[in-house]
Design a binder for these strands. Structure first.
Length: 199
DNA sequence: ATTAAGATTTACT
DNA sequence: GTAAATCTTAATG
Protein backbone atom coordinates (compact mmCIF):
# COMPACT_ATOMS: atom_id res chain seq x y z
CA UNK A 1 0.00 0.00 0.00
CA UNK A 2 1.25 2.52 -1.44
CA UNK A 3 1.59 5.78 0.01
CA UNK A 4 3.10 7.07 -3.10
CA UNK A 5 1.20 9.56 -5.01
CA UNK A 6 -0.32 7.24 -7.37
CA UNK A 7 -0.41 7.58 -11.07
CA UNK A 8 -2.93 10.30 -11.21
CA UNK A 9 -1.11 13.09 -9.49
CA UNK A 10 -1.59 15.06 -6.33
CA UNK A 11 -4.32 14.12 -3.93
CA UNK A 12 -4.66 10.57 -5.18
CA UNK A 13 -4.07 9.30 -1.68
CA UNK A 14 -5.77 12.02 0.28
CA UNK A 15 -6.93 11.19 3.82
CA UNK A 16 -10.31 12.68 3.14
CA UNK A 17 -11.05 9.74 0.88
CA UNK A 18 -10.98 7.30 3.78
CA UNK A 19 -13.17 9.61 5.82
CA UNK A 20 -15.70 9.91 3.05
CA UNK A 21 -15.80 6.15 2.69
CA UNK A 22 -16.34 5.83 6.43
CA UNK A 23 -19.34 8.13 6.20
CA UNK A 24 -21.14 5.75 3.90
CA UNK A 25 -23.65 3.76 5.87
CA UNK A 26 -23.77 6.30 8.65
CA UNK A 27 -27.17 7.56 9.72
CA UNK A 28 -27.82 11.27 9.81
CA UNK A 29 -30.57 12.19 12.23
CA UNK A 30 -32.28 15.40 11.26
CA UNK A 31 -35.48 17.09 12.34
CA UNK A 32 -37.65 14.06 12.83
CA UNK A 33 -36.10 12.36 9.84
CA UNK A 34 -33.17 9.98 9.68
CA UNK A 35 -31.28 9.17 6.51
CA UNK A 36 -28.71 6.50 5.84
CA UNK A 37 -26.04 7.96 3.61
CA UNK A 38 -25.54 6.11 0.36
CA UNK A 39 -23.67 8.62 -1.72
CA UNK A 40 -21.06 11.15 -0.68
CA UNK A 41 -18.38 13.26 -2.25
CA UNK A 42 -15.02 14.11 -0.78
CA UNK A 43 -13.77 17.65 -0.88
CA UNK A 44 -10.36 18.74 0.25
CA UNK A 45 -9.00 22.19 0.88
CA UNK A 46 -6.14 23.88 -0.93
CA UNK A 47 -5.38 20.70 -2.83
CA UNK A 48 -8.79 20.65 -4.42
CA UNK A 49 -9.58 23.41 -6.90
CA UNK A 50 -13.20 22.35 -6.95
CA UNK A 51 -13.65 22.72 -3.22
CA UNK A 52 -15.18 25.76 -1.62
CA UNK A 53 -12.25 25.70 0.75
CA UNK A 54 -9.89 26.27 -2.14
CA UNK A 55 -10.11 29.91 -1.27
CA UNK A 56 -10.59 31.06 2.27
CA UNK A 57 -13.90 32.80 2.58
CA UNK A 58 -16.55 33.44 5.21
CA UNK A 59 -18.67 30.79 3.63
CA UNK A 60 -16.00 28.11 3.72
CA UNK A 61 -14.74 29.24 7.09
CA UNK A 62 -16.82 26.51 8.67
CA UNK A 63 -14.88 23.95 6.68
CA UNK A 64 -11.72 25.04 8.42
CA UNK A 65 -13.39 24.62 11.78
CA UNK A 66 -13.52 21.54 14.00
CA UNK A 67 -14.73 18.22 12.64
CA UNK A 68 -18.15 16.63 13.06
CA UNK A 69 -19.93 19.84 12.29
CA UNK A 70 -22.65 20.54 9.78
CA UNK A 71 -21.93 22.77 6.85
CA UNK A 72 -24.92 23.95 4.87
CA UNK A 73 -24.66 26.06 1.79
CA UNK A 74 -26.94 27.27 -0.93
CA UNK A 75 -26.71 25.88 -4.40
CA UNK A 76 -28.10 27.92 -7.23
CA UNK A 77 -29.87 29.97 -4.65
CA UNK A 78 -32.83 27.72 -4.32
CA UNK A 79 -31.55 24.48 -2.92
CA UNK A 80 -29.53 23.57 0.12
CA UNK A 81 -26.68 21.12 0.37
CA UNK A 82 -25.47 19.47 3.55
CA UNK A 83 -21.85 18.75 4.24
CA UNK A 84 -19.99 17.19 7.13
CA UNK A 85 -16.74 18.77 8.17
CA UNK A 86 -14.03 16.18 8.69
CA UNK A 87 -10.43 16.15 9.66
CA UNK A 88 -8.65 18.30 12.19
CA UNK A 89 -9.28 21.99 12.47
CA UNK A 90 -7.54 24.08 9.88
CA UNK A 91 -7.41 21.41 7.20
CA UNK A 92 -10.56 22.54 5.44
CA UNK A 93 -11.78 19.10 4.58
CA UNK A 94 -15.46 18.31 4.17
CA UNK A 95 -17.69 15.63 2.73
CA UNK A 96 -20.74 16.48 0.68
CA UNK A 97 -23.82 14.38 1.38
CA UNK A 98 -25.26 13.72 -2.04
CA UNK A 99 -27.89 11.08 -1.41
CA UNK A 100 -29.24 8.62 1.09
CA UNK A 101 -32.08 6.39 2.10
CA UNK A 102 -34.73 7.52 4.54
CA UNK A 103 -34.84 5.08 7.43
CA UNK A 104 -36.94 7.12 9.80
CA UNK A 105 -39.57 9.80 9.47
CA UNK A 106 -40.38 8.48 6.05
CA UNK A 107 -43.83 10.03 6.08
CA UNK A 108 -42.57 13.37 7.25
CA UNK A 109 -39.90 13.42 4.58
CA UNK A 110 -42.44 12.40 1.98
CA UNK A 111 -44.60 15.31 3.05
CA UNK A 112 -41.71 17.70 2.69
CA UNK A 113 -40.61 16.40 -0.66
CA UNK A 114 -44.12 16.08 -1.94
CA UNK A 115 -43.36 12.67 -3.36
CA UNK A 116 -44.18 9.15 -2.30
CA UNK A 117 -41.21 7.60 -3.99
CA UNK A 118 -38.77 6.42 -1.31
CA UNK A 119 -36.05 6.40 -3.90
CA UNK A 120 -36.49 10.05 -4.77
CA UNK A 121 -36.94 11.22 -1.21
CA UNK A 122 -33.29 11.91 -0.63
CA UNK A 123 -31.84 11.66 -4.08
CA UNK A 124 -29.72 14.71 -4.68
CA UNK A 125 -27.98 17.05 -2.27
CA UNK A 126 -30.75 19.62 -2.17
CA UNK A 127 -33.43 17.01 -1.68
CA UNK A 128 -31.45 15.38 1.08
CA UNK A 129 -31.22 18.59 3.05
CA UNK A 130 -34.82 19.40 2.32
CA UNK A 131 -36.05 15.97 3.39
CA UNK A 132 -34.16 16.28 6.65
CA UNK A 133 -35.63 19.70 7.22
CA UNK A 134 -32.19 21.21 7.45
CA UNK A 135 -31.74 24.91 7.04
CA UNK A 136 -29.26 27.65 7.56
CA UNK A 137 -30.25 27.54 11.19
CA UNK A 138 -28.43 24.24 11.42
CA UNK A 139 -25.22 25.64 10.02
CA UNK A 140 -22.35 24.73 12.29
CA UNK A 141 -24.50 22.39 14.38
CA UNK A 142 -22.68 19.81 16.41
CA UNK A 143 -23.17 16.37 14.96
CA UNK A 144 -21.56 14.60 17.87
CA UNK A 145 -24.84 13.86 19.56
CA UNK A 146 -28.47 14.71 20.19
CA UNK A 147 -30.66 16.57 20.60
CA UNK A 148 -29.77 18.59 17.56
CA UNK A 149 -29.13 17.03 14.20
CA UNK A 150 -26.41 14.48 14.71
CA UNK A 151 -24.55 11.88 12.77
CA UNK A 152 -24.45 8.31 13.93
CA UNK A 153 -21.51 6.39 12.49
CA UNK A 154 -22.50 3.06 11.02
CA UNK A 155 -20.63 -0.16 10.65
CA UNK A 156 -17.81 -0.06 8.14
CA UNK A 157 -19.01 -1.29 4.80
CA UNK A 158 -17.19 -3.95 2.86
CA UNK A 159 -14.76 -2.50 0.42
CA UNK A 160 -16.50 -4.37 -2.37
CA UNK A 161 -19.76 -2.60 -1.66
CA UNK A 162 -18.26 0.80 -2.14
CA UNK A 163 -17.71 2.15 -5.60
CA UNK A 164 -15.85 5.24 -6.63
CA UNK A 165 -16.18 7.56 -9.60
CA UNK A 166 -15.79 11.09 -10.84
CA UNK A 167 -17.58 13.89 -9.10
CA UNK A 168 -20.62 15.60 -10.44
CA UNK A 169 -21.02 19.18 -11.40
CA UNK A 170 -17.37 19.88 -10.89
CA UNK A 171 -15.77 21.81 -13.68
CA UNK A 172 -12.28 20.98 -12.57
CA UNK A 173 -10.41 17.98 -11.26
CA UNK A 174 -13.20 15.73 -12.43
CA UNK A 175 -10.61 13.12 -13.21
CA UNK A 176 -10.27 12.37 -9.54
CA UNK A 177 -12.62 9.61 -8.40
CA UNK A 178 -13.57 11.29 -5.17
CA UNK A 179 -17.20 10.33 -5.28
CA UNK A 180 -18.24 7.29 -3.31
CA UNK A 181 -21.51 5.43 -3.28
CA UNK A 182 -22.96 2.17 -2.10
CA UNK A 183 -23.19 -0.42 -4.82
CA UNK A 184 -26.69 -1.59 -5.61
CA UNK A 185 -28.41 1.26 -3.83
CA UNK A 186 -31.31 2.58 -5.90
CA UNK A 187 -31.08 5.98 -4.29
CA UNK A 188 -27.81 6.59 -6.07
CA UNK A 189 -28.11 8.17 -9.45
CA UNK A 190 -25.87 7.87 -12.43
CA UNK A 191 -23.67 10.52 -13.84
CA UNK A 192 -25.32 13.81 -14.56
CA UNK A 193 -24.56 16.48 -17.06
CA UNK A 194 -22.28 19.29 -16.11
CA UNK A 195 -23.91 22.52 -14.97
CA UNK A 196 -24.44 25.22 -17.50
CA UNK A 197 -22.87 23.58 -20.47
CA UNK A 198 -21.52 26.13 -22.92
CA UNK A 199 -23.50 26.64 -26.06
C1' DA B 1 -20.30 48.91 -7.20
C1' DT B 2 -20.61 45.61 -10.88
C1' DT B 3 -19.77 41.15 -13.37
C1' DA B 4 -19.16 36.27 -13.56
C1' DA B 5 -19.66 31.57 -12.07
C1' DG B 6 -21.73 27.76 -9.61
C1' DA B 7 -21.04 21.16 -5.34
C1' DT B 8 -28.96 21.82 -8.65
C1' DT B 9 -33.81 20.91 -9.20
C1' DT B 10 -38.02 20.83 -11.61
C1' DA B 11 -40.99 20.85 -15.56
C1' DC B 12 -42.07 20.03 -20.08
C1' DT B 13 -41.44 17.71 -24.73
C1' DG C 1 -33.79 14.13 -22.95
C1' DT C 2 -33.70 19.09 -23.08
C1' DA C 3 -34.31 23.64 -21.38
C1' DA C 4 -35.09 27.13 -18.03
C1' DA C 5 -35.43 29.19 -13.36
C1' DT C 6 -33.34 30.82 -9.15
C1' DC C 7 -29.94 33.09 -5.37
C1' DT C 8 -25.72 33.53 -3.32
C1' DT C 9 -20.95 34.05 -3.12
C1' DA C 10 -16.40 35.59 -4.99
C1' DA C 11 -13.57 38.37 -7.64
C1' DT C 12 -12.46 42.75 -9.97
C1' DG C 13 -12.42 48.03 -11.27
Amino acid sequence: MPETSGPDGPGADHPVLAEARALLGAVLHGHGVSVRLSEVEAYAGPDDPASHAFTRTPRSAIMYGPAMRLYVYRSYGIHLCANVVTGPEGEGRAVLLRAGEVVRGHELAAGRRRTDDPVRLARGPGNLASALGLGLEDLGADLQGPPEPWLEPGEPLPDASVLAGPRVGVSRAEERPWRFWVAGDPTVSAYRRSPRAPS
